[in-house]
Design a protein around this nucleic acid. Structure first.
Length: 379
RNA sequence: UCCUCCUUAGCUCAGUUGGUUAGAGCAUCUGACUGUUAAUCAGAGGGUCAUCCGUUCAAGUCGGAUAGGGGGAG
């Protein structure tokens, strides 16, 4: 049982991109990495076996808010933690529910103590405080757990972003205190990642980076991006954060993004990503492929019996045809959602693993530029 | 051969006692989706109301003929 370790293996000479290795008690993660989102203990439409064998996922996410409401902490503890509950023996990262407090803002009430919100399932009222969220994440048992933060909307004014950031910092202190007072529950080490906030304001972000860094956590996250601000702003803030966060710790950019967002942010020094886009958009008939974005719903694929994507190493993408997948999606067959989700996730993983190879071989930037021209429209 | 019913968007159908620019679902196409309350949501295009002739200020709605189709009787 050992705390998470990060080994910085290669640094690109022409950009800030890095290749590294994260070691957890559930195995290694080679970075840069994309982490499929499995909110309620399930990457929607994709089985654990498919995640391992087809998608080649190295780590997945769970969500504190959702798992706390259902199935509930009692079940998860009795199961021996989320890994055992869902039969996934690779690393898991749990998000704290901070984002849900933001996105479900219709029914929340923020105080110094925490956030009172209503369950979207039965309307019941609950309090999330930093201490409660740490306790819940201890019970879920993720290898990496996230601080409880407030995620303000993208265009937030300076004053609101500042107030919100300061609250997040005070909550962070409480998160670490509780985290350090409590023990791992299932025989493997858990690691608390703090989250940088500060909106799109440079001085706030810099301040937040310094504050977060002072916690000397095993890894650091950047939150509050891709929440409505212009994409160029996101890159700008991401670059600034990368400069001010320690180089010897993994950097996790939360919730980002499109394949192109990911390549750009890898170039800025990000190591870890998660996003709902490959699975959600896949279920909505949007496929990310080596040749660009396609809407598999379109009639033009009706008789296209070529493979979904031969440009990536995924049996599902290589074997099933566009015409077949279109048919399944049109017919609302569950298998269609599975294939689309698996393909999109495999594509995302392909992007980050290829990025890693190119960083190591020294042609990351030229490969990235080639991708840009290949995709034409930047995905 | 006769009787009867039907014909409105690509498909299946609504269209009040004749009265503004004839609607819906599906299909087609487009857009959205970034730490999942989303197999979701938003929008667009598409009709000589089978054809022709009448009645009427006004016809998808009423009358007649023709064509195609369903059912029945011989």
């Amino acid at each position: 049982m050992a705390a998470l370790k990060f080994e910085l293996q290669f640094t690109d000479l022409n950009s800030k991109a890095r290749a590294g290795k994260v070691t957890t008690d559930h195995g290694e993660i080679l970075t840069p990495i994309f982490m499929p989102v499995g909110t309620v203990g399930s990457v929607k439409a994709v089985s654990q076996k498919q995640l391992s064998e087809d998608v080649k996922a190295q780590i997945i996410l769970g969500n504190t808010y959702h798992l706390y409401l259902r199935p509930g902490i009692e079940v998860l503890e009795k199961a021996g933690g989320l890994h055992k509950f869902m039969s996934w023996d690779k690393p898991i990262l749990t998000d704290s529910g901070g984002y849900q407090v933001f996105s479900l803002s219709g029914t929340r009430k923020l105080t110094e103590e925490g956030a009172v919100f209503q369950s979207h399932i039965d309307g019941s009222k609950h309090l999330f405080s930093p201490e409660i969220v740490m306790d819940i994440q201890r019970s879920i048992g993720g290898d990496i757990i996230m601080a409880f933060d407030e995620c303000p909307p993208g265009g937030s004014e300076y004053d609101y972003a500042k107030t919100s950031m300061e609250l997040t910092h005070r909550w962070l202190d409480r998160c670490f205190r509780r985290f350090n007072e409590t023990m791992d529950k299932y025989g493997h080490s858990q690691n608390l990642f703090p989250i940088v906030q500060g909106g799109i304001h440079h001085d706030l972000r810099k301040f937040s980076c310094d504050y977060i860094s002072s916690k000397d956590a095993t890894g650091n996250a950047i939150g509050g991006l891709s929440v409505g601000e212009p994409t160029e702003k996101m890159y700008e803030i991401c670059a600034l954060c990368c400069e001010h966060l320690p180089a010897e710790k993994p950097r996790y950019l939360m919730g980002v993004g499109t394949p192109w967002n990911i390549l750009e942010c890898i170039a800025l020094g990000i190591d870890m990503f998660d996003c709902v886009m490959p699975t959600r958009n896949g279920r909505n008939a949007m496929l990310f492929t080596s040749n660009g974005v396609i809407n598999i719903d379109n009639k033009k694929w009706e008789k296209d019996f070529s493979a979904i994507d031969t440009g990536i190493d995924c049996e599902v993408s290589n074997n099933y045809s566009k015409a077949y997948l279109r048919h399944l999606i049109k017919a609302k067959e569950i298998l269609g959602l599975q294939i689309a989700s698996i393909h999109n996730l495999a594509f995302y993983i392909h992007i980050v693993t290829t990025a890693r190879e190119k960083i190591i071989s020294g042609d990351f930037l030229s490969w990235k530029n080639e991708m840009a021209s290949r995709w034409q429209q930047r995905l």
